[in-house]
């Protein structure tokens, strides 16, 4: 059995779902959770119901916002005072930035963006996509412990029957240390929707969207079904959409429950970034477009007429 620490982030005071996915998969290991700052009792209980034995709340000056050095120093001090074999976190913006820094401070290794993992005899082995998902490989860690890994949101899925842990909680005095790269300002995104990498439903537009204004028909559907809007590289490079919306090898790799591709032909680098979506719907006028080879439901037709009809159908179905 391995001693595993799961670092969780919160969003509006709620733990990110990927933490619960990780805890569910850690059934059989000793799992504890660390959070920076405070965490409400209902969230501690939630973590406990998914298997957390203990929840450590790291509190100290200069930890109200993420900074690479502040978070890394605070967690490094805490981890040094304990004896964890592994430290896991979601492969989010913060997780992907923080874990390699933390690992390097222990001269330890980090397995990035795993889509699955096992603990055989207490030893971690992960599966992760490489080349944006064009292939998969087994990943193992070696060298000084603790070992680190990040896990892709939505990849493990929620455990069907979570096993509860004791869920004690404790405040820990944490030291952010010297922060040389200091955060001065946060500029909010235009959209308040969840990020593509964590979205449960994604609607993406391609070159056939013709311009950025036309993305409004995708936004309308997104509002109805609670989706985040994405784009292909062709659409981004043509200036129709921001790079933060790009799905594919030079954008984001995503794995939502539902991916609706509108006017996307399906270049190999786009398919690599979305092929692990659970259900894929494609709308394209070209019946031979490669996107149809990956689609569960393909509609050969014009997105400009199909999308509004589909939005109305979703409204009817959801009683909106």
């Amino acid at each position: 059995m391995a001693n595993v620490l799961v670092f969780t982030e919160t969003n509006d005071g709620k733990v990110k779902p990927v933490t619960l996915e990780i805890l569910g998969k850690l059934n059989g290991q000793k799992a504890e959770v660390a959070v920076i700052g405070d965490l409400a009792d209902d969230q501690v209980k939630l973590l406990a119901s998914y298997g957390a034995q203990k929840v450590h709340k790291l509190k100290g000056a200069n930890l109200d916002k993420y900074s690479p050095e502040g978070y890394s120093n605070a967690l490094q001090g805490f981890i040094k005072s304990q004896s964890f074999d592994y430290v896991l976190a979601g492969a989010t913006s913060t997780g992907k930035d923080l874990m390699p820094r933390l690992a390097a401070s222990f001269q330890a290794g980090c397995a990035s963006d795993c889509t699955n993992f096992t603990f055989d005899g207490g030893t971690f082995a992960g599966t992760r996509p490489l080349f944006a998902g064009k292939c998969l490989a087994k990943v193992e860690l070696t060298g000084p412990k603790p070992h680190f890994a990040t896990v892709r949101p939505n990849a493990l899925g929620m455990p069907a029957t979570p096993v509860a842990g004791a869920g004690e909680s404790a405040d820990v005095a944490a030291d952010a240390g010297a922060i040389r790269a200091a955060i001065k300002e946060i500029i909010k995104a235009a959209s308040s929707k969840v990020d593509l990498t964590e979205a449960n439903i994604i609607i993406s537009g391609g070159r056939a969207m013709k311009n950025s204004d036309n993305f409004k028909i995708l936004n309308e559907m997104a509002d109805v079904i609670g989706a985040t809007v994405g784009a292909s590289r062709a659409a981004v490079d043509s200036g129709f959409a921001a790079h933060s919306m790009q799905v594919g090898q030079t954008g984001k790799t995503v794995a939502p429950s539902l991916y609706i591709a509108c006017g996307i032909s399906g270049a190999i680098q786009h398919l690599a970034g979305m092929r692990t979506s659970k259900v894929i719907v494609a709308i394209n006028t070209d019946p031979d477009a490669p996107i149809f080879t990956k689609a569960d439901y393909g509609i050969v037709g014009d997105l400009f007429t199909i999308v509004p009809i589909m939005t109305e159908e979703f409204k009817k179905l959801l009683g909106k």
């Binding site: 290794g109 490489l130 070696t142 149809f292 990956k294 439901y297 014009d302």
Partner: peptide, 25 residues
């Protein structure tokens, strides 16, 4: 070396999906 890779493989192919013709309005 801190990370070792092995067992490179292609991701499993999805079975063919359903395709509907809606070119006709």
């Amino acid at each position: 070396r801190r990370v070792k890779y092995s067992s490179f493989q292609l991701p499993p192919e999805k079975p063919a999906g359903k395709k509907f013709d809606a070119m006709d309005a």
